[in-house]
Amino acid sequence: MTAQPFLEIRNLTVELPTDSGPIKVLDDISLAIRRGTTMGVVGESGCGKSMTALAIMRLLPPGFKITSGQILLDGEDITDVPDARMRELRGNEISMIFQEPMTSLNPVFTVGEQIAEAVRQHQGLDTGKAEQRAIEMLKAVQIPGAEARLNSYPHEFSGGMRQRVMIAMALACQPRLIIADEPTTALDVTVQAQIFALMRELQQETGTAIMLITHDLGAVAEMADDVAVFYAGWRIESGPAAEILRRPSHPYTSGLMSCTPRLRLGASAAEGGAALREIAGMVPQLGKMPVGCRFAPRCTRADGYCRTNVPKDVIVGPQHTAMCWKAEEEALA
């Protein structure tokens, strides 16, 4: 990679202290997002993908602490900048879209007030200009009758419309990175398609980078340039999305691929589809992590060595890395 990435996470570890010692909820995570591109972050619930987003935004829940590693935003180490600086960065440089558009909007303020608040806070616009900006943003996210809808309350919008409002708020200060945490999971497929189309269009216009957190490999295929796969607090594979979806290196990634049901249309629908492969067992509990590879207990390829030795993140292809002893063997072979 030649250009410096816009966001770079280096060896980030986040711990939660407990009575029985600290639990690493993120363990030595590294990833980089290039300017104007989309990074898909995939994994099951509890794998640490949302925790990474919260660490970047400095919104970790009480008790959780970054214990090592760095978060670099455009070269600036933001891991422990003062709160005042962090507040400048939030909104202006990075903003976030959450999964639940209903709970992340304030029900007692109109959507216009909420979008305007963001630009007044972060960009110091006066009330009139802020309202103008709110109208522009509602138009940008294709809400019909933007001027009139400015005075509507969140409950007067449908789920898809609310998510558009969230996107409008996130984009209002023209951030260079948007973190979208499962932005379409609560929405219908047809509305999801609209939101994805909108995000791509806005990305092309504004050149913002997107970190798309999702559990859906289909969403990664649709949206992402690069992908990082998380498992139990580890980032177990990363690289170009097209490459990883075609030739996954880590057995967990290929497991996820094979347990996703595929829609078969036209001629292929007449044949009975193959049975879905399963990944046996389940994600290990925090604080009860296996000693060696954390995926070993569920892995069909694991051997004694995997169960006792923590795998290293090795290069398995161009810009493609995986944390797997077997993938390393294959890369060397």
Partner: peptide, 15 residues
Amino acid sequence: LMSAALSPENERGTL
């Protein structure tokens, strides 16, 4: 509904 369905095999920007 079929057009809006996502698949890991799809090319980027299929939708």
